[in-house]
């Protein structure tokens, strides 16, 4: 099965679905945007393990990088950060 197919029409007729990053651009759901203050971050990686969307990736030095295309803005990372290095900012500000 071709995994390069991007639309329904390009797909062969099958009952199988192919794994795809970005089934939906869920970043559009967001009202509040998490922002990381790198100077406060202790690289504990708790935000990474608790993110329901896998939108936080761990860099080489374990600091978090947020993928705003997919972050839904739930705010779990900001709530769980032990040193309050993540703040939620309203979109458009």
């Amino acid at each position: 099965m071709s995994s390069s197919a991007k639309t329904r029409k390009e797909k062969p007729i099958t009952t199988l679905s192919s794994p795809t990053v970005g089934v939906d651009k869920t970043g559009f759901w967001r009202t509040f945007r998490p922002e990381v203050d790198g100077s406060k971050c202790t690289r504990c990686t708790l935000c990474w393990i608790y993110c329901p969307d896998g939108a936080i990736t761990r860099e080489e030095d374990d600091s978090p990088k947020i993928d705003y295309d997919y972050c839904k803005g739930c705010g779990i990372c900001a709530n769980e950060c032990p040193v309050k290095a993540i703040t939620m900012v309203r979109e458009g500000e």
């Binding site: 939906d24 608790y50 939108a55 295309d69 803005g73």
Partner: peptide, 25 residues
């Protein structure tokens, strides 16, 4: 320990669970 865990994700980004979904975690 949390840092030993794999960075590989098998629940890919862009899934359509509600924001803050416990089952997705």
């Amino acid at each position: 320990s949390i840092k030993e865990l794999s960075k590989e994700e098998y629940l890919l980004k862009g899934h359509i669970a509600c924001a803050g979904c416990g089952p997705a975690i």
